[in-house]
Design a protein around this nucleic acid. Structure first.
Length: 931
RNA sequence: GCUCGGAUGGUGGAACUGGUAGACACGCAGGACUUAAAAUCCUGUUCGCCCUAAAGCGAGUGCGGGUUCGAUUCCCGCUCCGAGUACCA
């Protein structure tokens, strides 16, 4: 029979499901390999053709690894908490759980049709109470932990209490809030329970604190920094403003250094690592105290952070952020009006304006002065919005000669510019940030070089108590609460305004039913609507829920032991599977999911629950699949009204037209199917066309794939027409996995033809299955062993597109050779099976093997002997220009080759009688005659 | 502005450590089969010149230089496109 992909694919998908072919267990006799896909949020739109790209690649890799003898964990699940289902619930009243459930069913059906080798018995859903019980449990561990800088790891909060008992706050080096109290052991003992809890909260790795947050009024919730892009929410694009609120946060800053260092140990794309480095934003410098001339507001100094302490003799002013807490106290009566006006002005500027407008210099003088600690000079204190309240101390020292922003500021306000290094040039024109040369005008460091000056100043400042070396990070603690319904409830209740954890047996704290998915009348989050939802009937629960990234920050561990009711995963399972060996997903998660996951992983390691410092050993970002839109051009009449006539793209310049998106599914190779177009929309029924060469050619544009642009290509349609094996191979054939590219269905025929041709190798001209047991010829073995090696090399470097080409070459060669030898074809079936599993299973069983045993065989052994040749057709070039080919035996020496080449008549013709200077000979590669 | 990635035929792309540029496929053109169409198969297809044709000659991997017997590949300088990031002191 001809290649009946529909029957074949249905049969094997059913077979795999019934026999649970891809179910894995921890098998100590085999090496393990963990292949993970970023699990999807099940949106209502279902999968488009771009989504499976990464899943296909990871599936090929998983199947290949199995053939190579690995015990492969390859699971799939759903990140099923999230905003869209909740927005839908607000509009329709439908419970998000119901929407989510039906979306998951659609996803599952679509995934199943692609023939993936997932172990579905390990499926997870983040919105399942059996799953989020453990998300809540991890939250509780974080609440019960603090970060000890002496041991450089998270520890149980009890070790902190012991330290307080033994030596008070002085005995503790921790990552904590800025406003921790100083106390003696006796003070600690005298604190009330509430006071103790309040103090401990400043140390916990998840904590409640009044913080400035990104408030998105339209979504009714706060957002983390990575969920905000250019002042708008990443989801939905609504405006975001700064607001002070009591919020749960995660002390991710405690792990800043380890998150940074860990990047050097993992095999990730450099851009992702670079983005994380920038996000963490480490800078090495010093904090320096400038004493106030007159102490104000209980403060006697202003602290600045600088990366160039060596330029401190060049300071001609200090600048504070307009929001800096000392500004009101520092402002003198004479300057009050100007300062207040300036603050009012900056406040009015939105975040966006402030970012867009980086050119204009602005600021105001407070009227106060500080003293430069190194030379006792009087330094004026200004405020300006180029200093950010949120970074460092919110105050900087202005060194106009070394920093361009300071230079612009000083020039604008006529402040002095002092040269500090003899190597600085042109500082009248612009700042020179060089570190070269030796110091001048710089008191005690005059004549020193950069390195010495920095360490000298740092120790001098530290000795005097006026400053010290300091490392600063740009990364902030992550806001962890969301004022939304469809997320994990935070397992906390309040007593006397202080948060307390639930007891472990009370988990999971299940999301309560509510009447409407909106905030309460008093502005509380939706959970405030739940009636009678109180801890043990008395205390208020926390009403915000966890953010979207909570459930995805540890899910790879749940796959290891997905149904365990007693632990997030058993110790044995974690010890066996360890970490993810290959992780495939989109680069949009570079600073969100991938950073938070690394953070939680390190935390779980500190507590001894997991062993690996880094969760994802190798990461690959699959490229985005963009949409490719097609257009028709409607002729517009003199009044600007659309007519009933559509002109082909090549002729549209002769007309006044308007471009209309046309469904890409009724266009083939940019040629419009006229009948289907007329049937597509009622108003096009009587359409008339101006054709070119008898065809209507559509215009093309690359855009995002979306319904409104009619450019969505659904995998189901393609599977219907060509089958899953064709689609799988075509998606790989499109180009390198990591490259972004527009989807174009043109060309899928080529892959389909290939599979038919492959099928035909096993059949005679009447489609009867027929293979021969005869010995393969050397040419056939050569083809086979070429592909054995090629595919193995390609998969090892994730170059799936090139293997598809090689398969085509192999099948072309074998067709040419009329090869139907079992010994060759059988091996070929194994090699192709990761790419096109259905057809290969079918042929495998037709070859007489036990059904389904294809997944247990080994990848064929490569034998280089079959590729060895006696001679090679050398390209002969003259002065590096290829002229001709010449067949020469491979075992000849350089001298023999030279003689052979020079003796050749045609070669002599190219030399035109010129004597050769030398002959370059690279065995098996090239002969180059230099004249 | 900074960081990263990219640029190869009409199109997607290949060329892995410097060694025959354009594999493989799409599209297109021509042909076979067919009453016809579809499907299938065969041939050609980087560009230019020359030509009935065969053959030949020249140019060619964004642009300009360099290293080398030899450069899509390495180095220097630029142009354009894409992504991320942005007063971070």
């Amino acid at each position: 029979m001809d290649y009946q992909f529909k029957d074949i694919e249905q049969r094997w998908q059913q077979f795999w499901a019934e026999k649970q072919t891809f179910r894995v267990t921890e098998d100590a006799s085999k090496p393990k390999y963990y292949v993970l896909d970023m699990f999807p949020y099940p949106s209502g739109a279902g999968l488009h053709v771009g989504h499976p790209l990464g899943y296909i690649a990871s599936d090929i890799f998983s199947r290949y690894k199995r053939l190579k003898g690995f015990n492969v964990l390859h699971p799939m699940g759903y990140d099923s908490f999230g905003l869209p289902a909740e927005q839908y619930a607000i509009q329709t009243g439908q419970h998000p759980a119901i929407t989510t459930e039906s979306n998951i069913a659609t996803y599952r059906r679509q995934l199943d049709r692609l023939g993936f080798s997932f172990d579905w018995s390990r499926e997870v859903r983040t919105s399942d109470p059996g799953y989020y019980k453990w998300t809540q449990w991890i939250f509780m561990q974080l609440f019960n932990s603090w970060y000890n800088l002496e041991t450089d790891r998270a520890e149980d909060i009890t070790t902190l209490i012991e330290k307080f008992n033994a030596a008070g706050s002085a005995g503790v080096k921790a990552v904590c809030d800025d406003d921790v109290r100083n106390f003696l052991p006796t003070d600690w003992a005298a604190f009330s329970q509430d006071e103790k809890q309040e103090e401990l909260l400043k140390y916990r790795l998840t904590y409640l604190r009044e913080s400035t947050v990104n408030w998105c009024a339209a979504l009714g919730t706060v957002l983390a920094n990575d969920e905000v892009k250019d002042g708008f929410s990443e989801r939905g694009g609504y405006p975001v403003e700064q607001k002070k609120m009591m919020q749960w946060s995660m002390r991710i800053t405690a792990y800043a250094e380890r998150l940074l260092k860990g990047l050097d140990m993992i095999d990730w794309p450099e851009p992702v690592k670079e983005m994380q480095r920038n996000w963490i934003g480490k800078s090495t410098g010093a904090s320096v105290r400038f004493m106030l001339e007159i102490p104000v507001g209980g403060q006697s100094f202003i602290e600045v952070f600088t990366t160039r302490v060596d330029t401190i003799y060049g300071v001609s002013y200090l600048v504070l952020a307009p929001e800096h807490e000392l500004v009101p106290a520092l402002t003198t009566v004479a300057q009050r009006e100007e300062v207040e006006a300036y603050i009012a002005r900056t406040r009015k500027k939105s975040e966006l304006d402030r970012m867009a407008d980086t050119k204009t210099v602005s600021g105001a003088f407070t009227g106060s002065y500080v003293v430069n600690p190194v030379n006792g000079e009087k330094v004026p204190v200004w405020i300006a919005d180029y200093v950010l309240a949120g970074y460092g101390t919110g105050a900087v020292m202005g060194v106009p000669s070394g920093d361009q922003r300071d230079w612009l500021f000083a020039t604008h306000f006529n402040l002095p510019i002092v040269q500090v290094l003899d190597a600085q040039v042109n500082i009248r024109e612009q700042a020179d940030a060089t570190k070269e040369g030796t110091y001048i005008n710089s008191g005690m460091i005059n004549g020193m070089v950069y390195k010495d000056a920095v360490s000298y100043l740092n120790s001098w400042l530290e000795e005097k108590g006026l400053g010290k070396a300091k490392i600063n990070y740009r990364m902030r603690d992550a806001i962890f609460g969301r004022q939304r319904y469809w997320g994990e409830p935070i397992p906390v209740y309040f007593k006397e305004g202080l948060p307390y954890l639930l007891a472990e047996p009370e988990l999971p704290l299940v999301l309560p039913e509510i009447d409407k998915y909106l905030p309460t009348e008093t502005g509380e989050p939706p959970l405030g609507r739940a009636t009678g939802w109180k801890h043990q009937g008395g205390h208020e629960y926390e009403l915000s829920t966890m953010p979207g990234w909570a459930g995805s920050s540890w899910y790879w561990y749940r796959y290891m032991d997905a149904r365990n009711p007693d632990a997030f995963a058993s110790k044995a399972a974690i010890e066996y599977w360890q970490a993810v060996d290959l992780y495939i997903g989109g680069s949009e998660h570079a600073t969100g999911h991938l950073l938070y996951s690394r953070f939680w992983n390190k935390f779980l390691k500190d507590l001894g629950y997991v062993q690996e410092e880094e969760p994802f050993k190798k990461l690959i970002n699959q490229g985005m699949i963009q949409g490719r839109s097609n257009f028709v051009y409607r002729v517009v009449d003199a009044d600007g009204r659309g007519t009933n006539t559509f002109v082909s793209a090549g002729l549209r310049n002769g007309y006044q037209t308007s471009a209309i998106h046309v469904d890409v599914n009724i266009v083939n190779n940019d040629v419009l199917d006229l009948e289907r177009f007329k049937a597509w929309r009622e108003d096009f029924r009587d359409a008339e066309f101006v054709l070119e060469e008898g065809k209507y050619v559509c215009g093309v544009e690359i855009e995002k794939m979306s319904k409104s642009k009619y450019n969505v290509v659904n995998p189901d349609d393609l599977i219907e027409r060509y089958g899953a094996d064709t689609l799988r191979m075509y998606e790989m054939f499109l180009g390198p996995l990591e490259q972004s590219k527009p989807w174009n269905t043109n060309g899928i025929e080529g892959v389909f033809k290939f599979l038919r041709k492959f099928w035909r190798l096993f059949h005679d001209e009447n489609w009867n299955f027929q293979v021969s047991d005869a010995q393969p010829s050397p040419a056939e073995l050569k083809s086979l062993h070429k592909i054995i090696k090629k595919v193995q090399d390609d998969i090892d470097r994730f170059s799936f597109n090139t293997s598809v080409s090689s398969f085509m070459i192999a099948v072309n060669e074998l067709t040419e050779l009329k090869c139907n030898k079992r010994a060759v074809l059988q091996e070929l079936v194994v090699i192709l099976s990761p790419y096109a599993p259905h057809i290969c299973e079918e042929l495998w069983s037709l070859l007489g093997h036990e059904e389904g045993s294809l997944t247990q065989v080994s990848y064929p052994e490569f034998n280089p002997a079959y590729l060895q040749e006696a001679s090679f057709s050398y390209p002969i070039s003259v002065n590096g220009k290829m002229k001709m080919n010449l067949d020469i035996a491979l075992d000849l020496s350089q001298q023999q080759v030279e003689e052979t080449v020079l003796a050749n008549e045609q070669v002599q013709k190219y030399l035109e009688g010129r004597p050769h200077k030398k002959i370059i000979f690279v065995k098996g590669k090239i002969v180059n005659i230099v004249v």
